[in-house]
Design a binder for these strands. Sequence first.
DNA 1: ACATTAAGTGATT
DNA 2: AATCACTTAATGT
Length: 217
Amino acid sequence: MPTIDPEILELIQERFPQISEPALQEAIASVGKLQSVTQGSILMDYGSYIQYVPLVIGGSIKVVREGEDGNELLLYYLGEGDTCSMSFSCCMTQKRSIIRTVAEEDTTFVAIPIEYVDAWMRDFTSWKNFVMTSYDNRIYELVQTIDSIAFKKMDDRLLEYLQRKAELKGTNKLSTTHQDIAYDLNASREGISRLLKQLEKNGQVKLGRNRIELVNQ
DNA sequence: ACATTAAGTGATT
DNA sequence: AATCACTTAATGT
């Protein structure tokens, strides 16, 4: 039996209050590995099998879907206290990943080897609840994203995107390029530039090279 | 100073 | 709204 890592134990208690059972906390601290990745690292890619389930401690991860032509589309973000629901369903059903996850910023997480994930569903109710709640949140966000694509015009999508991003990062000053936004929204860079210009005219944002500031109104 | 990268523009479909 | 074919501006070396 591996020893309990006190650092992980503390982080879990601090960032994942839903995981309340002490025995579960200790189990996580025993088998989990604390990992850090730099911005832009790909944690999981199309077709790969999942080896672990990540519990996000700090930073954020974006989950994207890519078409055959290389077009990308942002599905949702994972932030502190979140976990990747896709990795659950993948490891439960032994299927390859149908999405890609990329570190949106420098990110740390606790990696749980998949062999424990299943057993804990039986053994710990707080784990089961955590997983279910996580699914629920992710599906809710997915539906919002679908709504946004299906029913909203690009300018609304853009504003929504910026607001979510600002919320996730905890700041109104975003450092990103028009091109990156265009990739996430699967739009053209020029289109995004023009829409941002409009938003600036309306006093909703302030623009600079590599930075977009949301103006509270 | 020069090269590179981000952003802006206008025309076309 | 996308694409093209640029121009202009900011930034790194």
